[in-house]
Design a protein around this nucleic acid. Sequence first.
DNA 1: AACATCGGTTCAAAAAATGAACCAAACCAC
DNA 2: GTGGTTTGGTTCATTTTTTGAACCGATGTT
Lengths: 260, 260
Amino acid sequence: MSSATKTLELLEYFAPTRPEIGLSQLCRLASRDKATTYRGLRSLEQTGFVEQNPVTKRYRLGPALLQLAQTREITVPRKSGAIAPLQTLSQTTGETCHASILSGTTLYKLVSVESPRHSIRVIIDVQTFPLHATASGLCALAFGPDNLIDTAKSALTTYTENTVATEDALLDIIHTARNTGFGFADGSLESDVHSLAAPLYDQTGSFAGAVSVATVASRFTPELKQQIKAQLVTASREISRNWGGTIPAVIEQSWSAVLT
Amino acid sequence: MSSATKTLELLEYFAPTRPEIGLSQLCRLASRDKATTYRGLRSLEQTGFVEQNPVTKRYRLGPALLQLAQTREITVPRKSGAIAPLQTLSQTTGETCHASILSGTTLYKLVSVESPRHSIRVIIDVQTFPLHATASGLCALAFGPDNLIDTAKSALTTYTENTVATEDALLDIIHTARNTGFGFADGSLESDVHSLAAPLYDQTGSFAGAVSVATVASRFTPELKQQIKAQLVTASREISRNWGGTIPAVIEQSWSAVLT
DNA sequence: AACATCGGTTCAAAAAATGAACCAAACCAC
DNA sequence: GTGGTTTGGTTCATTTTTTGAACCGATGTT
């Protein structure tokens, strides 16, 4: 792993639950020597990616990220086109919803919306969705580029008893996703969390991401499942349209069959 | 300069006017060997900072930036509290307005708002404001930490005939900014562009950034100047309040003296 | 007062980065 | 269709940088 990659990975430890990190704490988190971590932070600081809180001496994310994120969204507009449909989806289903975006072989969380309807809510605290263990990931495997399947096969991490563990089982659930037009995960990332997802397309005509709804297993009735599927279709069409794409006819057909 | 810093600096070449950059073009822009540039891009790609457009093979900014920017704004909320007051400022003055934020010894552009009132508009296409050559920068020198003055002295880059060129001249205009409570630049970064700026404070009670109005020299009448100052004061108070800070009494006094 | 932990620094040894030269493929001009 | 140019990408001898154990002074804790 290159020095630059190691430095960049330091940024991943910052989170809303961990807004500031001291040098010694960060080197423990990153499992690196303090001098190495310090030089990484200096590099990030020089380029505006982190800044040192003058009061606490701890480090936090810096303003250059805001500028680059703005440039990214201006040049590849995805987030803004996903927010409103996702808020609607969350409101109508009453559950936690996500939009994700594929970059290389990684599915990044783009937008999350929680619903205030229930006091028992699903919180999925990841920034990237494992391909084999999430509904969105299964969408990517079913409708995205074929090389994703190889990537997934080489990283069959076990999260719960329900996480798919063999290549055959993985190919089976990918096949099911292709046939139904939906990714479905029942407790494969978190116990008692069920998720459904639909694919998203952009102007290239290719799979670009997924939109998903996550709910607690105990309220996942067949009625709710059908309702969620119908709402996912609406959201998928709208977000894809906002991204300059359309849903392929073969998926629209799968959806029709499943929703009658 | 470390390898990590060189890699991070590759990101600075991406802009709304340059959304995608090929490998050969980027190595020319960065004045680096192609192999070095390629390894830098690979590192950035592995961590989600850039992605390769599968159609054009060129590189563009990646989704990890969106996630980190969101974390940054959640943990250090600045941008959201500056947008509305800046839109109001632009609307009432009819000119281009900026909010900037200090990080280390660099003043980063945070938000820009243009007004549609005039067809001749100021566009300041920088991501960081030179301390000695902008109204916002002079605010930082006048009201920010003292070490900024040393930083400015060591980088007295000439942009126009009006750019301050000597340490004495720099100290003079810093002194004027301290006395008036406003930074003022007349053509020091761009010919025929005049700017006024006021300081911003956050919850630490320290200088945190600046809010500025830029206009074309030809419509910068004494009346407009007074109007802009009044509006800047309002915007400065509001943004500072949104950032958890208040304007120091000594600056409020300077403003009172200047606005009567 | 003693100890622990912090942010930060040094330098010999180890490891990685560099870039000139190279490759095949795609593009362009004629 | 051909020849030249430019592209994204690769290799490896050489050069340069990175690494991390040991260290520092300051601060916090008991």
